[in-house]
Design a protein around this nucleic acid. Structure first.
Lengths: 220, 220
DNA sequence: GCTTATATGTTTTCAGTGTCAACATAGGTA
DNA sequence: TACCTATGTTGACACTGAAAACATATAAGC
């Protein structure tokens, strides 16, 4: 979602007014309905009603357009996660809540998620805006891990390490969902519970003194 | 690695002899050095020295060629994992060993791993040989989880759920490695230890009675 | 107001892709 | 011998990302 509306000066045949935003919006739309790897620069130029090379005035190449879209999406993801952090809740609760929100984002925006973490974008490291937006999201998790350690709930390990362990679990979960790994697969419980249970198990690993067993054998 | 050598009848201008294998081999080679998404059917046809449409006699389309390569790679991965299972070792030890081997495979064969779990292959579910090869690998993990439960070491939960939690962690870890997430990033310890520590933490979640804290604060 | 530079468009073109249809040939079989 | 089928080839189509050369509208300096 871009902040401004895409058309600024209305009847300006030649100069579009705000082509850059219009292209980004069209790209997001196209990603959503044809998928990130069927997205074509020419296609989005066509839907915006502009020549096929016009986008090159605003983006060095297709890769940069994708990186810019991704940066936006990372911010979206960050805001969504951040809004769920409750300073009064325990670190564990916050972690589990944001973990589920993360999965939900991936499920609701599969193609965007693929853009964020797939290999559509080359040379990720060289798009600093995108990288920083991504790291901002990650820092939410690190912060909560640090809180949990300080509160004496979690193992007193390196926060980056612990946070990363959690993140990789959730990220792997998302990847497998999007790759259709769970389609036509019999699960022992509703899908949502399945995901939640995994997050609970994974976060149990951080607890200094986890319950000997906190899961009902029949439910899980 | 295909089992037979690719050229059967030597001087047969028109009929190649074993084009199918030759194409698969060329595909693997091309994946290794230009990457899975820069692989082109025409390119591999060229290196094999055959017309650009010849591959269509052996593969319905590019997607099917990729799926066939992936099936092979899954078997590779399976064999590598299976060879590490020691019936006399504990489930936990086996799980940690295969987990590290899995990451090592991903690091050594980044483009192959991307092929296996990225979105290069469309409609994965419809390539049953590939799907089954993949599930075979996963079953190794499930088996060990079941062993751990029976031995009274692990939480008595649904093995699929527990195994999946572990797998998603390792898979996520691999994805982030390949996406260059750890490049130019300061880590609190050597990279290999970093990965191993995460696997240890993640598998700690399965233990019925994990050590209150088993990690030295300074090392981790 | 006039000129001029710059940002933002367009046209044209190139090299590359996956895939299809039509045709050619070699080897095995009736 | 005649033919069928598997396996090749040629040529074409409809795409793609991208570069080069050209056009125009807006903004800045005088």
């Amino acid at each position: 979602m871009t902040t401004e509306t895409a058309s600024a000066s209305p009847d300006n045949k030649y100069h579009h007014g705000n082509l850059r935003l219009a292209l980004l919006d069209a790209a997001i739309a196209q990603i959503k309905d044809v998928g990130v790897d069927k997205l074509s620069l020419r296609g989005i130029a066509r839907t915006v009603g502009v020549s096929q090379t016009a986008p090159y005035r605003h983006f060095k190449d297709k890769n940069q357009l994708l990186a810019d879209v991704a940066a936006q999406a990372f911010i979206e993801l960050y805001e969504r996660s951040y809004s769920l952090i409750d300073p009064n809740a325990s670190a564990l609760e916050n972690i589990q809540a944001t973990g589920m929100a993360y999965l939900q984002y991936a499920i609701e925006n599969p193609e965007k998620y693929r853009l964020l973490f797939g290999s559509s974008i080359k040379n990720r490291r060289s798009y600093s805006a995108m990288v920083e937006a991504g790291e901002q999201s990650f820092r939410i998790l690190i912060d909560q891990v640090e809180r949990g350690i300080k509160a004496g709930d979690f193992i007193p390990g390196c926060p980056l390490l612990l946070a990363n362990t959690l993140w990789t679990q959730v990220h792997g979960s998302a990847s497998l969902i999007l790759d259709g790994f769970y389609q036509d697969r019999e699960l022992p419980m509703p899908f949502d519970d399945f995901l939640k249970a995994q997050i609970m198990i994974a976060s149990r690993a951080l607890l200094l003194n986890p319950m000997p067993i906190s899961l009902d054998k029949n439910r899980i």
